[in-house]
Design a protein around this nucleic acid. Structure first.
Lengths: 107, 107
DNA sequence: GCCATATTTAACTCAGTAGTTGATAAACCA
DNA sequence: TGGTTTATCAACTACTGAGTTAAATATGGC
């Protein structure tokens, strides 16, 4: 149930993208994820909730810690959407369109 | 605001994604773009402004009309970011392994 | 049971955004 | 010229979202 609205909205925030970058290197706890940022742990906790609701992370339990792990499916889905809208407007297509346009004007 | 902030934020709205889908088939005017939606032309005009500020569309002039064209560069940038953050060890590797397995069975 | 650590929840502020209606601007047409 | 079409701007409402501080919850060590 990967929702593009939620995925793109989650990716629109630089803090959340940095968290994803960090998690691409391996799982981490909220405390570890908060460390590089000048915002409170509570704010990070909210960001993690957004990422979780978008399906971009899953969370485990290790004593008091709630380690986060990246979940790639929503990234794949959004990449697929972008690719589907990119291929039709790539350079070859633009050139073809331009050629047809020119042919219509000067037969 | 980074370009990625603006691009992903623009892509997070279903109306704007539908507009992009429409524009992938060729350029269109605000009036044409507004037609499928149950919202006012003014609201569409705001959406187009968001897309323009994100660099996702460019606009021309044809009499009273302001035809919109898709601009693919921001889509490329966001696709690049996503591609760089897919976890390359788990699922991707599994898919490759499956592919190799299939190739071994049916050369 | 009690205390420290790690994290979440609650309540609030502030800014931004999606939508509305009404007015305005620009280009064509008769 | 005056009227029509096309699109934007202005002002406003309602909602969402990122951040805060303070309180609550969960877990392990003693």
């Amino acid at each position: 149930m990967s929702d593009l609205d939620a995925t793109f909205a989650a990716l629109a925030d630089p803090v959340r993208r940095a968290i994803i970058t960090r998690l691409a290197a391996g799982e981490a706890t909220p405390g570890e994820l908060a460390e590089p940022f000048p915002i409170t742990l509570q704010a990070i906790s909210k960001h993690l909730k957004v990422l979780e609701r978008a399906g971009l992370i899953t969370r485990g339990r290790d004593a008091q810690r709630r380690p986060c792990r990246l979940r790639p499916e929503p990234l794949d889905d959004s990449a697929d959407w972008i690719a589907a809208h990119r291929t039709r407007t790539d350079e070859r297509y633009d050139r073809l369109e331009q050629l047809l346009h020119d042919m219509k004007e000067r037969p």
